[in-house]
């Protein structure tokens, strides 16, 4: 028995060129690709030089291979972040009251694109380099706060996701009416909470300087990190805010409801 191709029901929802324009995956894909290259580069650099030149913070080789990396990455990441933040601020929409629904809908998709970058960059510290830090501490302990592991996880990966988190916050407040008319509690929580992991490093390193806590990675000294990480759960509330408004815009911008013929 043969089946004609035209008789097979389509699993795809009818789409139009307009639908493809509403969200552009290109910039996100390029951003992910760049980040992936940076993180893979860090991992390869660690593999090549951690045990070779990273065991003694007082050695000249450590200064060459690791302090140099530290001195380059911190200003570079925060400098890039500052440029992005200034761009978002100075190009803000100064007349949101007269924004079209289509523009607003596009910007909600834009906000989700920023969050795709933010959560992707957070993943690398919370999972890959976060647990990777344990491999270093269980192997060689530490001599200063600047270990080959910390120089990557704390001073590159953390600033990186802070850049994307603050950018998401700025994008929302400078371009989307609802976020310009009120402080979004979940948005602030989801950006500020994980961002506080950076200042929490002060407590972490202070504690490590006085207490020998290398033996247990899940030591109470480290509990500030997961607690601040939990604030990421606030994205649940942000989903309500975003999806709720987008659902209204879908109906108002999208035109009349689909007929039976459209859904066939």
């Amino acid at each position: 028995m043969s089946i004609q191709a035209s008789s097979i029901p389509s699993a795809r929802v009818p789409s139009t060129p307009k639908a493809e324009k509403m969200f552009n995956l290109g910039p996100v894909a390029i951003g992910w690709g760049l980040l992936l290259a940076i993180y893979a580069g860090f991992r390869l650099y660690q593999g090549a030089f951690s045990f070779e030149y990273g065991l003694d913070a007082t050695s000249p080789e450590f200064a060459t291979y690791w302090l140099t990396l530290f001195q380059i990455e911190v200003p570079l990441i925060f400098g890039s972040g500052l440029c992005i933040w200034l761009y978002l601020w100075f190009t803000r929409d100064r007349d949101m009251d007269n924004m079209s629904g289509e523009t607003e809908l596009k910007r909600y998709f834009g906000l989700l694109a920023w969050f795709m970058m933010y959560t992707f960059s957070f993943l690398w510290i919370a999972s890959f380099f976060g647990e990777g830090d344990a491999t270093w501490h269980q192997t060689v302990i530490r001599d200063t706060a600047l270990t080959p592991s910390h120089i990557v996880v704390f001073y590159a990966c953390v600033p990186m996701y802070i850049v994307f988190g603050v950018s998401s916050l700025l994008y929302a407040t400078t371009r989307i009416p609802a976020f310009a008319r009120g402080y979004s509690l979940p948005l602030i929580m989801a950006v500020l909470g994980p961002g506080l992991i950076l200042p929490n490093l002060g407590f972490n390193e202070w504690g490590h300087a006085f207490w020998m806590t290398e033996e247990i990675f899940s030591h109470p000294l480290h509990w500030g990190f997961p607690i601040l990480g939990w604030t990421g759960l606030a994205l649940g509330g942000l989903f309500i805010q975003v999806i709720g408004r987008m659902a209204v815009l879908f109906k108002e911008v999208g035109g009349p409801p689909a007929e039976d013929a459209d859904l066939a």
Binding site: S15, T16, F23, L112, M116, L235, F250, G254, G255, A258
Partner: peptide, 24 residues
């Protein structure tokens, strides 16, 4: 009560939420 065009947008939104939620 969505138009065919809006259904496409809605499906795109579904996918984006899944990706963001998975990373989170």
């Amino acid at each position: 009560e969505l138009s065919p065009q809006a259904i496409g947008w809605s499906r795109t939104l579904d996918l984006l939420i899944i990706v963001v939620a998975a990373f989170l």
